[in-house]
Amino acid sequence: MNAYQLKEEIISYSKEIGIDKIGFASASMFDELKNRLLAQQELGYASGFEEPDIEKRVDPTLVVPKARSIISIALAYPSKLKDAPKSTKEDRRGIFCRASWGQDYHTVLRDRLQKLETFIKEKVPAAILQSMVDTGELSDRAVAERAGIGWSGKNCAIITPEFGSYVYLGEMITDIPFPPDKPIEDGCGTCNKCVDACPTGALVTGGQLNSQRCIAFLTQTKGFLAEEFRSKLGNRLYGCDTCQTVCPENKGKDFHFHPEMEPDPELAKPKLKPLLTMSNREFKEKFGHVSGSWRGKKPIQRNAIIALAHFKDQTAVPDLIELIKNDVRPVIRGTAAWALGKIGNKEALDTLMNLREKEKDQEVIEEMSKGIEMLQEI
Rank of each mutant, 00 (worst) to 15 (best):
G252F: 04
A39Y: 12
E347I: 02
E260T: 03
I321V: 09
N250G: 10
E42L: 10
R110L: 07
G18K: 01
M353Y: 10
D175C: 06
L308E: 06
L33K: 00
I176A: 12
V204E: 04
K342Q: 15
Q362L: 09
D350V: 04
E262L: 01
N354D: 10
M1D: 11
N250F: 01
T88I: 02
K253D: 00
C97W: 03
P85V: 00
I173T: 15
D134N: 05
L169T: 12
P179M: 13
E8F: 08
P270K: 05
E322W: 13
S28Y: 08
L109W: 02
M261V: 01
M374C: 14
H106L: 11
Y77S: 01
S231C: 07
P161A: 10
T135R: 08
A336W: 01
A39N: 14
C191R: 07
G189N: 08
S165A: 09
I158N: 01
Y13E: 09
K370S: 14
R93L: 02
P60D: 13
D254H: 02
E367L: 10
G341L: 04
I10Y: 06
A142M: 05
F178S: 08
L43C: 15
K34A: 06
V58K: 03
T107R: 11
I11V: 15
A25M: 03
